[in-house]
Computed example of a mutant assay.
Amino acid sequence: MYKIDKKRAMFILNKEYDNTIFVLSKGEGSQMTFAETVATISNLKVKANVRDIILVKSIQNGLDYLLDKLYYDELYFDKDILCMINRYVAANENFDNIGGFSISARI
């Protein structure tokens, strides 16, 4: 195993951008195809469930934030960064605690 420089790492991340969003949205239950996901990322109209479109755009916003932090060497994995990523990704789900951790008691 060898270490790659930041420029190469960012190239790989940007090359896998669409696929990463597609895989993450599938993990959240999206029914969109890869082509529909790429079209949504590119702000093109698709015939898909509105919930899935919002999900893909939310994941895209979170990934954009993460890539921006990486690009400017400002990514320090701490609670504030994690809450900000969660704020982007879960913007339409956790209204009473936007960006914070949701606590659920399971009995």
Rank of each mutant, 00 (worst) to 15 (best):
Lys15Ile: 14
Asp5Glu: 03
Gln60Leu: 10
Asn92Tyr: 10
Thr33Pro: 03
Asn43Asp: 13
Val89Trp: 00
Ala91Met: 03
Ile21Lys: 03
Tyr17Phe: 15
Lys26Asp: 00
Gly27Ala: 11
Met32Lys: 01
Phe22Cys: 01
Gly100Leu: 07
Lys7Cys: 05
Arg106Glu: 14
Thr33Lys: 05
Ala35Thr: 06
Asp52Asn: 08
Asn49Ile: 10
Asp64Glu: 13
Ile85Phe: 06
Thr20Ala: 15
Lys7Asn: 10
Asn92Arg: 06
Glu74Thr: 11
Leu75Arg: 09
Met32Val: 02
Ser42Pro: 05
Ala105Lys: 15
Ile4Val: 04
Met1Pro: 02
Ser25Arg: 04
Lys7Gly: 06
Gly62Trp: 08
Ile59Arg: 01
Glu74Tyr: 09
Glu28Ile: 04
Lys47Ala: 09
Phe11Asn: 14
Gly29Thr: 06
Tyr65Met: 10
Gly27Asn: 13
Asp80Asn: 11
Lys45Phe: 07
Gly99Arg: 08
Asn92Asp: 10
Tyr65Thr: 08
Asn43Tyr: 12
Val23Glu: 14
Gln31Val: 07
Asn49Leu: 11
Glu16Thr: 12
Arg8Thr: 13
Val56Asn: 01
Lys69Asn: 09
Lys6Ala: 09
Asp78Asn: 15
Leu75Thr: 10
Tyr71Ala: 15
Asn94Ile: 12
Glu36Ser: 00
Gln31Arg: 09
Asn86Ser: 13
Ala35His: 03
Lys3Pro: 04
Leu44Cys: 06
Phe101Asp: 13
Gly100Tyr: 05
Ala35Ser: 08
Ala91Arg: 05
Asn61Arg: 13
Gly62Leu: 05
